[in-house]
Design a protein around this nucleic acid. Structure first.
Length: 569
DNA sequence: GCCGTTTTCGGCCCGACTGTTTTCAGTCG
């Protein structure tokens, strides 16, 4: 059983406890335990086997017992008892904005409403006003909420949202009433999926800023308009919140609205221990404000080193900031080589020369062309003959460029039995080999593990491409034993890819953390199919930063000579 | 439910906003 599966059960328990009005701190204990497991780089089964589950913060005697029952027997009686008591439809109701556990349980208890549809018709007929605490406005909000639930899916890929947020920031910056501006929230933490856009502005004239905001051309409708907060829906279906604060509160508000919630909760308990208080307006000792001109000074006022947004998930970064062991995170400027790129030879849209020039212009020193191999028919994969022709073209381009080198790479299909898609006499001539699974993505876990282990043991494979094959919000990852893959990569000195394409981000940040801890090197790539795709690198780097990766963990931060010698070229 | 170098019981982050209310509960981030 995976950490994610256990985490989901704990999360459901927390929700059900909230619904029945349990002690909110008990609910939070389950939520915390859920998140602790979800974010743990340790496998829950290993933790149980070695009796270290209780070492995780927030997991005590009772939870160790319940989680052990779940993992060893596949069931948890406590969970099943709760589930028998609470209709599943109540979970759906919680997705209605402004409709929380108390209201959901009230409609169930007082009117026996158990589904969204029943709730909708009850609200339409005005029957809900009979319940204490429910009025006309509440019914209207429920109806509007159900309507917007039907229209919008809740989550969006980082790559779809970040450019949008940057456009909004650029447009608002032109408004003279705006003093400081930035996007915040999970977007700033570079989470792979985000729910909405949070924009923060400091200004002395919030009304003018709000006007400018609601008049942005791709704003579809204004949902809430206030003096400190305005919410709009964009044409793309994404919600965007703008908050306006006084200029002196901007750093504290940035810290606060960047989150994560867990990070902030932990930070405030640190503040409390120091006799201070942190909120979105500043850091306070009693009534007195401790002046902070930047986020950095906020952290310093709590005796912590500055914590980059990508680390703020309460997975140990606060402890590391306290004792000075925060990692020196990889940065986009550290990346010197653009790896895993496609050209017109397979399914890319630019030539080798165009890709090389684009990479050189962006400041990279080398480029690995990795087109598809012969089995990838739909992707116009290269036969052995076409591979040789491509090599000639790459050599021509190399002769024409100074201080830049194009490597002869391939993204070779890993076949069902783990073998690679060309005979050895071709394989051995590539400079760099990325091996990826493109067919039969959902074979049984044991079989997929064997397939990947076998590929990683192949002497000519250098990098395992997009290891889990997931497509974010679209395709589930392949199932296999990730720890076995990491272990095999470590033993054979192989590299794992962090495919930075915003649909993939594969490995994900937690896998990166696990791999790096085992000493496995990571290649941050773009999987570029055009010159423009090279700009996707920042999503890969953002994910790497979330995974605590440093320059030393990433092979394409090496310069061209170091890189060539790592792969014995 | 967790946690503790003042505590094994009594805490557990904090404030804004909203709607239904005469002083507050619920929701949200």
């Amino acid at each position: 059983m995976t950490n994610q599966e256990v985490s989901k059960v704990l999360d459901d328990i927390a929700t059900m406890l909230e619904l029945v009005g349990e002690n909110p701190f008990k609910c939070r204990a389950y939520e915390r335990a859920s998140r602790e497991l979800e974010n743990s780089i340790e496998n829950v089964e290993d933790l149980i086997e070695t009796e270290r589950l209780g070492d995780l913060p927030g997991i005590g005697k009772a939870l160790v017992e319940k989680i052990t029952e779940l993992v060893t027997s596949g069931r948890m009686s406590y969970y099943e008892e709760l589930r028998d008591k609470i209709p599943g439809g109540l979970f759906d109701m919680l997705k209605i904005p402004g409709f929380g556990p108390k209201k959901a349980y009230a409609v169930y208890r007082d009117m026996d409403i158990t589904t969204l549809d029943d709730l909708e018709s009850a609200a339409q007929s005005g029957r809900l006003s009979g319940i204490s605490g429910f009025g006309k406005k509440t019914e209207e909000r429920i109806l509007a909420g159900i309507q917007s639930l039907k229209e919008r899916v809740g989550l969006h890929r980082l790559g779809d949202v970040l450019p949008c947020a940057e456009m909004i920031v650029d447009q608002l910056r032109a408004c003279p009433a705006v003093r400081r501006i930035s996007y915040a929230g999970s977007l700033r933490r570079m989470k792979e999926v985000v729910k909405d856009i949070d924009i923060l502005v400091s200004s002395d004239d919030s009304d003018t800023v709000m006007d400018a905001f609601t008049r942005i051309e791709f704003v579809r409708e204004t949902v809430v308009r206030g003096t400190t907060k305005t919410s709009v829906a964009l044409d793309s279906g994404i919600n965007c919140d703008l908050r306006v604060v006084a200029n002196q509160s901007f750093p504290a508000a940035m810290q606060y609205f960047t989150g994560s919630k867990d990070h902030n909760v932990h930070l405030r308990s640190i503040a409390r221990d120091l006799g201070c208080k942190v909120n979105e307006y500043g850091v306070f000792r009693g009534e007195a404000v401790i002046p902070c001109a930047s986020e950095q000074e906020i952290y310093e006022s709590l005796n912590l080193k500055y914590i980059p947004p990508e680390l703020r998930e309460d997975t140990g970064e606060i402890g590391a900031a306290a004792n000075g062991t925060l990692p020196d995170l990889i940065d986009t400027t550290d990346i010197l080589g653009m790896l895993h790129c496609h050209t017109r030879w397979s399914d890319g849209s630019n030539s080798v020369a165009e890709m090389a020039e684009a990479a050189r212009k962006r400041g990279y020193r080398y480029l690995a062309i990795c087109d598809h191999s012969q089995s990838s028919h739909v992707a116009n994969g290269l036969s052995a003959d076409r591979v040789r022709e491509q090599w000639e073209e790459i050599e021509t381009v190399n002769r024409s460029m100074e201080d830049f080198v194009v490597l002869k790479g391939i993204e070779v299909d890993i076949k069902n039995d783990g073998s690679l898609d060309y005979p050895d006499e071709i394989m051995e001539q590539f400079d760099i080999v990325v091996g990826s699974v493109h067919q039969n993505l959902h074979m049984p876990s044991a079989q997929m593990t064997e397939r990947l282990v076998s590929a990683l043991s192949h002497p000519h494979l250098d990098i395992l491409g997009h290891p889990t094959n997931r497509l974010i919000l679209s395709r589930e990852p392949s199932r296999f034993d990730m720890d076995a893959i990491i272990e095999t990569a470590a033993q054979h000195g192989k590299v794992l890819e962090l495919n930075g394409h915003p649909w993939r981000l594969d490995l994900n940040w937690l896998h990166c953390k696990r791999a790096a801890r085992r000493g496995v090197k990571i290649a941050i790539t773009t999987d570029a199919h055009s010159t423009a795709d090279m700009d996707l690198l920042r999503y890969g780097v953002g994910t790497a930063r979330r995974g605590w990766l440093t320059k030393g963990d990433v092979v394409n931060s090496l310069n061209a000579d170091e890189f060539r010698s790592l792969f014995s070229l």
